[in-house]
Simulated assay, not measured.
Amino acid sequence: MMPNTVEARTPAKVGRPAPIAQLKLVRDIHAPAPMDPALQSQCANCVMHWACLTNAVPTAQRMQLDRMVHTWRKVGKGETLFRAGDTFHALYAVRSGSFKTVVSHPNGSSHVTGFQLSGETLGLDGIAADKHTCDAIALEDSTVCSMPFHCVEDLCQDIRPLQHRLHQLMAEEIVRESGLMLLLAGLTAEARVATFLLNLSSRMQARGYSPSSFTLRMTRDEIGSYLGMQLETVSRALSRFQREGWITVEGKRIALLDAAALSAL
């Protein structure tokens, strides 16, 4: 008999994994230790459930959802959820905290390609070739929910809203990439920083937080990498915004005082 902390399934034959109805709850194979049972809860009790991929699952089919979302996983600040080249096996919903995605180049340099907040999904990059193309690194102590992709695919066959939401997420990735290219190619350095702050503001507001006062979990160097500029350029832009009275900066705490002025850049 296997230990109580981990249950496994034994497929009847080699090939496609067993149907979702045959799956039992298992711990993410990459997790360093079993989760504290006191922290476990149903998706319906998650404060970010409304923003998550799983929100597309109708209430009547939540039992299937519970089987799909295998476990929480803790990721400490600076730790990696997955690395470029790792075999793709799951999508991850950010339950709390935040992440950055980083692409490394053959010459040894690296580039930040995105910042993911609670309620957003990580791992979509792995669908194309069954391997991840970037590193996902926690900007702070964070937790994610693991959703094995073969389970997501099985559920999508039965639950059309879930399939539609997955397609939406993939389309949003394309739109985000296109927007980043436009941001880097068509805007001045100050306009890039202003656009970045306004984007964070709208994402915070969508999550029920203050749109005018929030903490930057990423460093200015990471912001510069994402926006295609040097650390000093980011700092100069923020200093100018503060002199103009458009923002106030206290360490990593930012307060937007004149969003209209930032939008006009």
Rank of each mutant, 00 (worst) to 15 (best):
A93W: 02
S98W: 02
S110M: 10
H105T: 03
L117S: 09
A84V: 01
A90F: 00
Y92A: 05
V112A: 14
A90S: 05
G114P: 09
N107T: 06
T80R: 07
L91A: 03
G119C: 08
T101F: 07
T87K: 15
G97N: 05
G119A: 05
D86N: 12
A90M: 01
V103F: 09
K100N: 09
H111V: 15
R95L: 08
A84G: 06
G97R: 00
G108F: 14
V112R: 10
G97I: 00
D86I: 09
F115Y: 10
S104Q: 11
L91T: 02
E79S: 11
V103P: 08
S109K: 05
S98V: 00
L81Y: 02
F88D: 03
R83V: 11
S118F: 13
L122F: 12
G114L: 08
A93C: 14
F115Q: 01
H105A: 06
H105E: 13
D86P: 14
G119E: 00
L122R: 06
G108S: 14
S118N: 12
T121M: 07
N107I: 08
V112D: 14
Q116I: 10
S96D: 03
V103M: 15
L81W: 05
S104A: 11
P106L: 06
H89V: 06
R83S: 08
L117D: 12
G97Q: 03
Y92L: 01
S109V: 05
T101C: 08
H105D: 13
L91K: 10
E79C: 03
L81C: 07
L91Q: 06
D86C: 02
L81K: 04
V112N: 08
S98C: 08
D86V: 03
V102T: 15
A84H: 00
L122E: 11
S118T: 05
Y92Q: 01
L81G: 13
T80Y: 13
A84N: 07
H105M: 13
F99Y: 10
A93S: 05
P106H: 00
S118M: 12
T121D: 08
H89Q: 13
V94S: 01
L122P: 13
S118L: 14
H111E: 08
V103R: 12
R95A: 05
E79R: 09
Q116W: 09
R95S: 06
G97K: 01
E79H: 05
F82G: 03
Q116H: 12
F99W: 07
H89L: 11
P106D: 07
V103W: 13
V102R: 12
G114W: 02
H111I: 11
T101N: 06
T113A: 12
T101E: 07
V94N: 04
V94M: 09
T113H: 09
R95P: 00
V102C: 07
F115E: 02
L122Y: 10
G97P: 00
V103G: 04
T121R: 00
R83W: 01
F88I: 02
R83N: 13
S110C: 15
